[in-house]
């Protein structure tokens, strides 16, 4: 069968479904706006381990196991595990995968990893290459802070444009069989760099990539922003999502009240997170909690989920390079609206 293709968008004919999902978060996120929706809230930042890195690993393992259970499957049914995270050489994902007897392909899209792995997973399932694929990602405040910023106990102030890395992990099981919300199409984004060099202003660095992906998506699918119950960006934060709204308006698209940003909704205003949440876990946990639940109950019928990622490393930042961004989008539709 020939696949229908837009410029950047892949349309799925065989209805790859999200048949299981799971989200696990740390204590701070557990006090946030979405605390009733998460599958699991862990009060220990170390997740029972000796180091934060090991803790993040355990977080992915628990998310994956939870999702498999949620799908009423066993690990034998999972044919491929797609996962990625923020740490160098995506160790959290790879070390988590070491525990299981399933093929593993690491993906890296910085904070866009959730959308990227969902899009890739849906392609593989839709193409008939795999029947069931697991997608996961995670981020941990303390591991990210150690790697990208300053030691945890350093007494410095966070710049006002900075964001708070979410401690959390989300996992999805995509399958051609079973029931659940359907992934109908995926738009892969191009890397965009508008010359932002401030590593504490990720929202501004990623907003252009988000704009390109959204426009490509609307053109390819011949839809308008109003056609979706929810347009969800990953972790642009307050500043980044305001910029995205401006950029889209410039190009003739008006993002209305149905546009929300995961980074802004996950924490409460008084949680001292400045511009909001960020990290792979931000979009992953929001998608795998409130969004999928509302898709299943039918409150949302059609959601455009777009996660954004800033593709920098500490080295590139120290060498004065600007921060390139990327954004991938998937459309998820509730099963009931057929």
């Amino acid at each position: 069968m020939k696949r229908e293709l837009g410029q950047q968008t892949v349309f799925f004919k065989n209805k790859p479904k999200i048949i299981g999902h799971y989200s696990i978060v740390g204590p701070k996120e557990g006090k946030g706006n979405l605390r009733e929706y998460f599958s699991e809230i862990e009060q220990d930042d170390f997740f029972g381990q000796k180091t934060y890195e090991k803790g993040e690993r355990v977080m992915i393992e628990r998310a994956l196991e939870g999702a498999v259970k949620d799908a009423n499957l066993s690990f034998d049914d999972i044919k491929l595990f797609l996962s990625g995270d923020l740490l160098n050489q995506i160790i959290s994902s790879s070390y988590a995968a070491r525990k299981y007897d399933i093929p593993y392909a690491g993906v890296f899209g910085a904070c866009s990893t959730m959308a990227e792995s969902l899009a890739l997973g849906a392609c593989l399932v839709d193409g008939g290459h795999f029947e069931t694929v697991a997608c996961a990602t995670s981020s941990h405040f303390s591991t990210a802070e150690r790697q990208f910023r300053t030691p945890l106990e350093l007494g410095s102030q966070r710049p006002p444009t900075s964001q708070w890395t979410v401690t959390g992990s989300g996992a999805d099981i995509i399958s051609s069989k079973g029931s659940g919300p359907i992934i109908t199409c995926a738009t892969f984004g191009k890397v965009a760099d508008f010359g932002i060099t401030d590593v504490n202003n990720m929202g501004a660095a990623m907003a252009p990539a988000a704009m390109y992906t959204l426009i490509a998506h609307f053109k390819d699918t011949k839809t308008k922003p109003e056609d979706y119950d929810l347009i969800l960006s990953g972790d642009l934060g307050k500043l980044g999502s305001e910029i995205l709204i401006d950029l889209m308006e410039d190009k003739g698209y008006k993002l209305g009240l149905n546009y929300k940003d995961c980074g802004q909704i996950i924490f409460k205003r008084n949680q001292n997170v400045l511009m909001g949440g960020s990290g792979c876990g931000c979009s992953a946990t929001v998608l795998n909690s409130i969004v999928l639940k509302k898709l299943i109950t039918g409150e949302y019928k059609r959601v455009l989920f777009m996660a954004t990622g800033a593709l920098l490393s500490t080295l590139s930042a120290q060498q004065g390079e600007s921060v390139p961004g990327v954004a991938h989008a998937v459309v998820i539709e509730g099963e009931k609206n057929e």
Partner: peptide, 24 residues
């Protein structure tokens, strides 16, 4: 691109909400 980046950077700079410096 350079023109665009420059424009974007100054736009972002203006967009950043001015926090009051006095308390800190």
């Amino acid at each position: 691109d350079e023109v665009r980046n420059k424009k974007y950077n100054s736009y972002v700079e203006a967009k950043i909400a001015k926090t009051h410096a006095w308390p800190s």
